[in-house]
Amino acid sequence: MQKILVTGATGQLGSEFKILSKNYPQFDWIFADRTQISLDYINKLIEQLENIQPNIILNCGAYTAVDKAESETELADVVNHRAVSVIATYTKEHDVKLIHVSTDYVFDGTSSIALNEEALTNPINVYGATKRAGELAALAVNPDVLIIRTSWVYSSFGNNFVKTMSRLMQERDSLNVVNDQIGSPTYAADLAQAMMDIVSNENWIPGIYNYSNEGEISWYEFVLAIQEITGEQCEVKGIPSSAYPTPAARPAYSLLDKSKIIATYGIEVPDYKESLKKCMGLLKG
């Protein structure tokens, strides 16, 4: 029985894999938190991997605190770059398959058309720079790695934009939300399913792929979609990014072109509103 190791098991994507794993009993699943796979402590990492001896690694662990990364540069680099290099080296030496999750923040946001996998990268914050360094390091040591860039991830698990906005709309009379950053949300359950569709496919075609839900929206429009589902009466106002300064700059446009993953693996990509309804249904319980 092949063994699948999921890193970052307590995060949004890792938590979705715990649910999804019930549909894949043909695999022996290992869900590793920070103590079992220490992405922030590289000296332990090889030993931990050798103890587990996986056949497939789904690297969902990452340093994702985008603003905090501006002041925790070293830690972000260790987790998002150097640990990825160690994992990729291990997979090369032991003939292990690796799907590594990356981000739309590798782009600078100056595009006006959906970004494909060949688009030039130019990160504008530390988080994006460390994630891009991780991509390059992984492919340099193991060209057989498969990387999936995703964007605006949310889930019924963990802390995320959807849960925060749902709560704030209940607590406040009005909300200001940035309306000049354009992209598409990703329901973590859909991303997990796409990754398993790849794992289950006979063909393993390495390289970089994009995955997010379908749709082109701003964060402001995302909140309006959440409000449409919840029916909250809060007034939602769109504001420019300049009116909401953050330590880390965000790309103004990072919509991902999904045509490669659809053509290569026949992945079905749900519309963002359909997936949002599913997630909100779970949150309502």
Rank of each mutant, 00 (worst) to 15 (best):
I239H: 07
N23D: 15
K44C: 10
S38E: 06
C60E: 10
A263E: 15
V199L: 12
S156C: 08
I124G: 00
M195P: 07
N210M: 08
F222W: 10
A194K: 03
T164R: 03
I148T: 00
I56N: 09
S151F: 03
H81K: 13
I87F: 12
D28F: 04
E228L: 12
A138K: 04
G238K: 13
Y211I: 07
Q12T: 04
I19S: 01
P206D: 07
G109M: 00
V141Q: 01
Q53M: 14
I198E: 10
K260P: 10
R167H: 09
S21E: 00
E50I: 07
R149I: 01
L49N: 07
D173L: 13
I57C: 08
S166C: 07
N142V: 01
Q193K: 10
V269S: 12
T103H: 06
S155V: 02
K258D: 12
L146C: 00
I87G: 05
E274Y: 09
P54M: 06
M195G: 03
V86Q: 03
C234W: 11
N160I: 01
L58S: 08
S102F: 11
N125F: 01
S102G: 10
Q170D: 09
L39T: 06
K97Y: 14
A192I: 09
T35F: 13
K18A: 02
V96C: 15
F27G: 00
S15N: 10
A248G: 12
S242L: 10
Y63D: 07
G158T: 00
T73E: 14
D95E: 15
M1V: 05
D67C: 10
P185R: 00
E216G: 06
W152F: 02
N179V: 06
A114Y: 00
L276W: 11
L191W: 02
P247V: 09
A192M: 11
E72N: 13
K277M: 13
I147E: 03
E117Q: 02
D108F: 08
V199D: 11
N23W: 07
I262Y: 08
D95V: 07
Q181L: 05
G266L: 10
T246W: 09
F107W: 01
S184P: 05
T91F: 05
C60V: 09
D108L: 04
T89M: 10
T7A: 05
W204C: 04
T150K: 02
L45C: 02
R149C: 00
S166W: 09
I198D: 04
E70I: 11
A188G: 13
W219H: 14
D173Y: 01
L139D: 00
G14F: 08
N122A: 11
E268M: 11
V199Y: 08
A137Y: 01
I217W: 05
V79R: 11
W204M: 00
G158K: 01
R172G: 04
Y220P: 08
D197R: 14
P185N: 01
K163C: 03
E135S: 05
E171R: 05
P54L: 02
T64P: 06
I4N: 04
L191R: 03
T7L: 00
N213V: 08
I46N: 13
D197N: 15
P251D: 09
W204Y: 04
I99K: 06
Q48K: 12
A65R: 14
D108I: 03
S218G: 11
N122W: 05
